[in-house]
Nucleic acid binder design. Structure first.
Lengths: 202, 202, 202, 202
DNA sequence: TCGTAAGCGAGACGGTACGTCGAGTCTTGCT
DNA sequence: AGCAAGACTCGACGTACCGTCTCGCTTACGA
């Protein structure tokens, strides 16, 4: 992250926190309004009441600015309901709400798409994996509770749960309806819970 | 699609099929070489040995050109092995190979990302749903065989199967290893096959 | 213009002459309306109801077309009043009228200007010298009458008479007022008539 | 003229004087080499080592740029020899030399021709009249000396002297030979000096 | 307390690509 | 073979952004 460094000992005028905030805010506003590919650094500067150099002093490129702004958008939020199904339904239900209340639904695909053809977006990977951390945590709790097999491929299980949302988000112009969460989690969870051994026993 | 229209009787010199092909081919080549966001219409024109106007006469924007070129990249390929699991493993296995042999792995996320913040990509939706049609067909065969419940939500089932691939494609820089297909299909399929009714019966 | 030709003749060039006229007329109209530098061959073709190829079959370039069209604009008109002064005043007076009734005032400078930086306008020279021929003729009559010195540099004399008009036409946006002709001719003529010998005798 | 304004206190980075000079110089060079109508803004930018936007920031069009560059080409140069004839012969003689040493011979007709069909060239008029100022001054000195009639139409007299040069410059591809100056001035001057009154006296 | 080093808004800079337009050529089918 | 229509290549247009670079100013720290 490029938050104003705490490191001291720098001479000269310190970087303005207000400018930093104004830039991030303007970026998020504009992402909502015009989308990612129509976003220009010049418009961000104008909206934030800031010179372009002030932006480039903090971020090396427009992309990295947007990645940082994206980092302020709501991610999966950890919830411990006591059961895996409860955790997943709550977490994903809340997360989906963000698609309608923040530019997340456009920014996330845009950045992911850009990452595919850009090499400078290693940063993006870290942001993404951090954002999915609560999901991993929920699975680990389930393992600890003995709710799922100990040798469960947690990464794959996570992808299975999140997959349908990703597919609809990327491949569909339509909004994702919140009601889909329950059947979606249910179906994915059956696949996850029914370990091969259990399946053969039944 | 902007394939030369079947409508006849147009006055004037007809549009050149060679130019059309050369443009699409150049686009695909350049997508492989430099990726989507570094692709320029000018470079396509130069590579195809074509004037820019000839491109813009056919496609209103770089984006629509790329969508059309994308339409020529390999999609899911229908295979009927007799079992749902066989179908899915074969289809997805083959499809994943394309990520390493075509620009698909960069173009698909790029276009999906662009669609999120662009309104002119309605076309893209049609292309995408056509490309997924074989998946739907495989599920319908399974329904006909009684292999899965008749009231299965086929769209959701499809998303569940494809989801993990999408997640890894979009959110990871890493290549998708072909070996993941078998466990991936297995896990998804367990969720799909274990219908609520069957589960309560057992 | 697309009405079926009345000519009974079969193949060949049934509309050839009409097309030629239509092209020249359209060119002159458009020169009046939009001026030389905004004139496009495409607009001429459209106005004339003619294909571009039909124009290029006759003229090698837009410039040569305009030169030809220019050739149809009124030139100096030979008049024999019996005296040099009478000839010049009449001829120039009439000529100046054309500046207000034809696109001459814009086309002539435009072509002259183009000639300066274009090598293909040799043709233009011939057209120009033909257009000035009546002036030369008037001077030769004056020589024959003994009205001017036999060794008069007729070319220079012509330039002197026409010069002020040229200067005003080229260097001034203002229209040339017809009343200027009389004093202009008078002043030039005094320079021409007062031969060095006559001057020394007086 | 677009010389850097004297107005102070403008925010932001000031416009580069070097860029300005480089653009004008490149324009003049290219005018010499390829002529007016083959001059492109892109080539000027390339030659000057400047972005196109830097040119368009200063001049609204190629035409206005060339007008400004033209303003730096040598004009009539005021000379006071004591006699009108001496002044004119010297001034015009020197001026004609410029036709062979600068792009003047092509730029002047080109601009004049363009002015005829373009409304944005009001600027050009001012440049032209400033350039002819020395001629007017010479005539006024002659009036003061009593060398010519006090009521002489100076504008007309100027046009008469300059006229033959203009005619040959515009209507002839041939170079203007310096030797023509003496007879040309002589003939024009006789017309100017021989006032109507003097003529009637003789 | 004051110099100085860096940050600040503004906006010009060199580039690069955009999407448009026109010149002059070529290719249809019709006459 | 000429014609109207219109697509073709080429190349310039004028615009818009990118990321960098001055300008003339604050603004805080350290001497």
């Amino acid at each position: 992250m490029s938050a104003p460094p705490e490191t001291a000992a720098t001479a000269g005028r310190p970087r303005s926190r207000e400018a930093h905030r104004a830039i991030i805010d303007a970026t998020l506003e504009l992402l909502s309004e015009v989308g990612f590919s129509a976003l220009t650094v010049e418009s961000v500067a104008a909206r934030a009441g800031v010179g372009k150099a002030t932006i480039y002093r903090r971020w090396a490129s427009k992309l990295l600015l947007v990645v940082d702004a994206f980092g302020e958008l709501p991610a999966l939020e950890d919830v411990d309901t006591g059961s895996l199904q409860g955790d997943l339904e709550t977490m994903l239900g809340r997360y989906i709400e963000n698609f309608n209340t923040t530019p997340l639904a456009t920014v996330l695909p845009s950045l992911a798409g850009e990452r595919a053809s850009s090499s400078e977006l290693d940063v993006f990977d870290q942001v993404l994996s951090r954002r999915r951390e609560p999901l991993r945590a929920a699975f680990q709790r389930a393992v600890a509770r003995g709710e799922v097999a100990a040798d469960l491929d947690i990464a794959l299980a996570g992808d299975l749960v999140v997959g349908p949302i990703a597919v609809r988000l990327y491949f569909t112009g339509a909004r994702i309806h919140p009601d889909i969460v329950v059947p979606m989690v249910e179906m994915a969870l059956r696949g996850i819970l029914a370990s091969p051994k259990a399946a053969s026993e039944s």
